[in-house]
Amino acid sequence: LGPKYVGLWDFKSRTDEELSFRAGDVFHVARKEEQWWWATLLDEAGGAVAQGYVPHNYLAERE
């Protein structure tokens, strides 16, 4: 699936296409579209919880 990303700060969605998340949440990014990335929010087991657009500057690649 490629690298995983972690949320740096809490983010509250403003549209139906955006995905709310908390700092520390883990994502798989499917598409990078300039300022907004289409991402899947993952649970602790790595299963998909939700999908939506997230601001790229709120995520960091997980080491």
Rank of each mutant, 00 (worst) to 15 (best):
R62C: 15
W36H: 06
V29T: 01
L1M: 13
L41C: 04
N57T: 09
A39Y: 04
A30R: 08
D43E: 01
R22Y: 09
L19N: 00
P3E: 09
L42V: 07
L8G: 02
E18R: 07
V54M: 01
K4S: 10
W38D: 00
F11S: 01
Q51S: 15
L42E: 03
L59W: 04
D43S: 07
S13M: 05
L59M: 05
R31V: 09
R62V: 15
H28Y: 15
Q51L: 05
A48L: 09
W9S: 06
N57W: 14
P55Q: 04
G46A: 04
Q51A: 11
E17S: 13
G2R: 13
E44A: 12
E34C: 15
Q35N: 14
E63W: 12
V26M: 13
E44N: 10
K4I: 15
A48D: 08
H56D: 06
S20K: 03
G52V: 04
W37F: 06
G47I: 14
K32D: 04
T15F: 10
V6L: 06
L59K: 01
G24R: 02
F27D: 00
A45C: 14
V6Y: 11
A45G: 11
V29Y: 04
Q35F: 15
Y5F: 09
E63V: 13
S20Q: 04
E17A: 12
L42G: 01
K12W: 12
V6W: 06
R14L: 10
N57D: 12
A45T: 13
V54F: 03
G47W: 10
R62A: 15
L41Y: 02
A30F: 12
A23G: 04
P55A: 04
A45V: 11
W38G: 00
D10A: 06
V54P: 00
T15V: 09
E61V: 14
A39V: 15
H28N: 08
S13Q: 08
G2S: 13
F21D: 00
L42S: 02
G24Y: 03
G52H: 01
A45N: 15
W37M: 03
E17Y: 12
G47C: 14
G7K: 01
E63T: 13
T15M: 08
R31I: 09
A50P: 01
A45H: 14
G24H: 03
A39E: 00
S13L: 04
D10M: 06
P3H: 10
W37S: 01
Q35E: 13
V29W: 05
A45M: 13
N57R: 08
E33Q: 08
E17H: 12
F11V: 02
V49C: 06
G52W: 07
A48P: 12
E34F: 09
E17N: 14
W36N: 06
E61G: 05
Y53K: 11
E44L: 09
V49H: 05
S13G: 15
H28P: 01
N57H: 11
S20N: 05
A50K: 10
G46C: 10
D25N: 07
Y58S: 06
Y58I: 03
E63G: 12
R22Q: 10
T15L: 08
R62M: 15
V54L: 04
V49E: 03
A50G: 09
T40F: 13
V29I: 09
E34I: 09
A23I: 05
F27G: 00
F11L: 02
K32Q: 07
Y53E: 00
